[in-house]
């Protein structure tokens, strides 16, 4: 019985890894495209996101199948539940990546750079958070997951600073209202991606320790030696 479950679980893990790689790759490529203002890459987005949606549904169906057929318990149950939850987080990251691409393209029409103000700094941290959250999940690396949670504060602070910086600049160029809306939206989408990566990290902590860590203060997360 367990061998059958293991086989299904292995297949699920491989589908999940493929989704993670796709979403991370899309995000990384987008940040590079933003630096070069590569509009052709921005245009690829509705299709790229469609493929993520299909993968997400296939993973969810596989999780439901394993739950229904094998009624897993303990570590096996936590693993399926964690994948089911992270699957949703990753799909949302895909959507947000797509939204950023749309906003980046709109900046091109205003002849403005997407990588401006604090966007490059936020992108760098969020890229690291995304990479490390997925890597920690794959490698069951508790300490790496905790570090992801700690990075979220930096992103929140930068997003807060973004309002201040934009306000000063906006007063000089009030006619470019729509462009500033795009910057603040991009910053907000990046900040949301950061939140989703911390959710992934917290789901890993649940998987490993069987305890729900969400909605706790940052001090609770302690790396082990």
């Amino acid at each position: 019985m367990h061998r059958h479950f293991e086989k299904g679980h292995k297949k699920l893990n491989s589908m999940f890894e493929d989704l993670c790689n796709t979403v991370e790759n899309n995000f990384t490529q987008l940040t590079l495209a933003m630096e070069k203002m590569d509009v052709s890459y921005f245009d690829k987005f509705p299709d790229l996101d469609l493929s993520i949606d299909e993968k997400e549904i296939a993973i969810e169906e596989e999780c439901l199948k394993l739950l229904a057929l094998y009624q897993p318990v303990a570590g096996d149950l936590r693993s399926i539940i964690a994948i089911l939850k992270v699957n949703g987080e990753i799909e949302r990251i895909g959507d947000l990546t797509s939204n950023i691409a749309y906003r980046a393209k709109s900046l091109h029409s205003f002849k403005m750079e997407a990588s401006a103000f604090l966007i490059p700094e936020i992108c760098t941290i969020v890229r690291k958070m995304l990479h490390n959250s997925l890597k920690s999940f794959m490698n069951r690396d508790r300490n790496m997951a905790i570090k992801v949670c700690h990075l979220d504060e930096q992103v929140d602070d930068l997003h807060g600073d973004m309002y201040k910086v934009l306000r000063v600049d906006f007063e000089k160029n009030p006619k470019k209202y729509d462009a500033y809306m795009s910057y603040i939206s991009m910053s907000r989408f990046l900040e949301r991606i950061g939140d989703h990566t911390t959710n992934i990290a917290e789901d890993l902590l649940y998987l490993m320790e069987g305890e729900i860590f969400r909605h706790r203060k940052i001090e609770v997360y302690r790396p082990t030696d």
């Binding site: 303990a74 149950l77 305890e211």
Partner: peptide, 10 residues
């Protein structure tokens, strides 16, 4: 059934 303490139980 969600998080047993002993490996044998799991």
């Amino acid at each position: 059934f969600t998080n047993p303490s002993k490996k044998e139980t799991e």
